[in-house]
Amino acid sequence: MTEYEVLLQQTINGLSLGAMYALLALGFTLVYGILELINFAHFNVFMVASFIGMWALQLFGVSGQTRILTGAALAGVLAFAFVVTMAAAGVIGVAIERLSLRPLRGVRGTAAMITTIGVNYILFNAILLTVGAGSENYPNPLPVVRWQFGHVIVELKEVLIWVVAVVLMVALHLFVNHTRLGKAMRATAQDGEAARMMGVDVDRIIVIAFFLGSALAGAAALIFGLYYNYTSFIVGYTVGLRAFTAAVLGGIGSITGAMVGGLLIGLIETLGGQLIAVRWTDVIIFSILVLVLVVVPSGLFGRSNPQKS
């Protein structure tokens, strides 16, 4: 394997991870864009969703990597698992908003943010206490299909990840830019009070932001399980913090920023791991987080000075 091929291989791996980080980063950004709130509960919405995806797949008798499906059965089971996981994650996100954040609306200061930290901890312990601290072998019905280009390998699961990520991001783009509600969402993010005075029901927009962001975390969670073949109570932090870094790097609040930031963090993880050392990956990624916050707090695509009332 030439050095060039190694880098190409790591780029392919990085794009897969990056697609997952991007989907997860979008949830931070959608909520922040509207409420200027960092939703820490998002970390473990992702983690809980990975378990929901696991249970959804197990409903079809898929366990471990032994029961392989093909054709329509594979497509059907995967579609079901994605829909169920995304819907369930979306509902969890909406419930968090309704139960723990809406009552605090209008309260100044850090109360809402601290509440999301509390909810994050509740989700974490709910899984730890019911499922346990072990790693779960993730059900994966995908056949091992790989395409080889020289020494560079592309796997079926990676193609699946890219397709799912691209479809979801294009759908989000269309929603936000070309539908009445999507435009109301952008308007609310740019000037909430003005949007309200145009007749926008801002509470409804907030619910939609939580639903979409959490549903995208659900998709990312299922991708995570299918890619790594495991999940555990801790993945909300390991994966979530990288996605959060991606959102900050792209400019939190910016949808394009979350997508680009996610891909960059994925590439930095694999290429940095290759060029420097895998065990330094976290140091590299969190140095980026700190650097961005210190040097360019608005990120690559963020607004340093949003017009707010």
Partner: peptide
């Protein structure tokens, strides 16, 4: 018509007009 105009700055003029017709 809000004080200091308060348009949605990163939306097009057309989209701003659409927001006026939101209801």
């Amino acid at each position: 018509v809000l004080e200091a105009r308060r348009l949605f700055p990163r939306m097009t003029v057309y989209e701003n007009l659409e927001m006026g017709a939101y209801t």
